[in-house]
């Protein structure tokens, strides 16, 4: 690879990482009461409308829950307390996030396990393919061929 490519790649990497750092700095966790209430409403499902959260739903029960979440937040209750209270009133399935404990935690673990296992399987397959191959084409060979083909 030519020298100026390294420089260009370095610039791109630098700009990208600066941009990403700037992006994550600008993004702050919910701080005000309104933001907290918003977060709770957005992650709570309206019990009668199948899939919509209480923030978006027009159903009266969603309006009722919204009003109560505002009330409880301003009373200084914690997020966990409010969620638990709503789950008691309307059933566990008002929380859009499945629990992280008990059998419900499987939904978080299984996909990660499947991802790791299938990636592992692919890596294993690549190994096998490599071993099973007759003559190996090294990276250097490829470099030579492609640099010859490339009109510089």
């Amino acid at each position: 690879m030519k020298q100026r490519h390294w420089i260009s790649w370095f610039c791109i990497a630098l700009v990208s990482s600066l941009a990403l750092v700037a992006a994550s700095v600008a993004d702050d966790p919910p701080a005000t009461e309104a933001e907290r209430a918003y977060e709770i409403k957005a992650t709570m499902l309206c019990p009668v409308c199948d899939g919509q959260n209480v923030l978006e739903s027009n159903a009266p029960v969603a309006a009722a829950i919204r009003a109560q979440v505002d009330e409880l937040v301003s009373e200084g209750r914690s997020d966990a307390e409010i969620r638990a209270w709503m789950a008691r009133q309307y059933g566990k399935d008002v929380n859009a996030n499945p629990p992280r404990t008990g059998i419900g935690s499987l939904i978080w673990i299984v996909p990660v396990f499947v991802a790791v296992a299938s990636t592992g399987f692919l890596v294993f397959a690549f190994r096998k393919w490599r071993v099973g191959r007759g003559s190996e084409l090294s990276d250097d060979d490829v470099t030579i061929v492609s640099s010859l083909r490339e009109p510089t």
Binding site: G51, N53, P98, G104
Partner: peptide, 16 residues
């Protein structure tokens, strides 16, 4: 699945 195993009613929503 969860309901079949222990009868719990769970929801899996957008945040998941």
């Amino acid at each position: 699945i969860v309901e079949a195993i222990n009868g719990d009613q769970l929801a899996v929503g957008r945040p998941y």
